[in-house]
Amino acid sequence: MKTAVLVFPGSNCDHDCYHAVRHVLGREAKFVWHQETSLDGFDLVIVPGGFSYGDYLRPGAIAKFSPVMGALAKFTAKGGLALGICNGFQILTEAGLLPGALMLNSGMKFICKDTYLRVETSDSFVTGRMEKGKVISVPIAHMEGCYIADDDTLKRLEDDDRILLRYCGPDGQTGDESNPNGSYGSIAGVLSEKRNVAGMMPHPERVVEASLGGVDGLLVFESILNSLSAA
């Protein structure tokens, strides 16, 4: 498993993602500057969190035109696996690699806290090691994390089993009280049509060791590793 961690001006979770793959999983990882034009030779591309281009205009709106994004479009068109986390999710939706959009939190505040997430499908490269219905605890840290999409898109996501995770309570119940940002259907993460591109607002890379306060994020990285070694 050889992982590329993309780095844009303003990325700030790139080192956390690198640490999770390189030091916790013990696999090869490399930072790839956004000016690069090739992602050949990688098995996985992580688009990390942060504030690419200062979130100017809209989060991800300018990053989507970085040269590496052209390479990412080619990489994913060939079936390569890509995971966008937080700002990475925003970039992937802006780039059209994932459906929908991420809007200002309904409470209009930056929220940084642990959230419970319910696994909605096991049929994905990021949740393959988790049973449907399992509840994990992973922190969020964002201002624009309210997931929205038009009704047709939402229906297609449901019908195709492409909703990865939903915000929930500790018991797995979804509802307004456990929806931190107003996302439609409490959606915290989605998959692309071909299931090889995933995006999520919560930060699994922040909970990969007990010393960081949790290990539930490791399940995401282990799922990726598992799906790559099974391929």
Partner: peptide, 8 residues
């Protein structure tokens, strides 16, 4: 292309 997000 850039100034507006056609989704929203």
């Amino acid at each position: 292309k850039l100034l507006a997000n056609p989704v929203t």
